[in-house]
Amino acid sequence: MNEQFARRVVVITNEQGLHARPAQLLARLALQFDSIIDLVRDSQRVDAKSILHMLTLGADQGTKLIIEAKGPDAEEALDALVRLVESEFAADETIGQEKSG
């Protein structure tokens, strides 16, 4: 077994924070990987494959989160997830119906 462990720090930079849509995008992406993936905010640790659990973080703009992955595709999973967060959940913001107008 090629078991990897990976850990990265990200900052939620989009204005709306980690609301339902970003959480859904993250969960959908995380589910594509076999690794166990957690999001950690201070002492809270949640499953990145569960929208419900990620929403409990209440992560608003500026929140620092740690993403941890353990499993055969941990590195690949983190690369993809970090890219999504750093793009400010690109799909979310470009469609942008949630933006105030």
Binding site: Q16, G58, S100, G101
Partner: peptide, 19 residues
Amino acid sequence: PDRPGDHLRALENISRQLR
């Protein structure tokens, strides 16, 4: 539209309790 924080706090509360 100008209160994203309130929306996030409500989602946080709902999800936290429903766990």
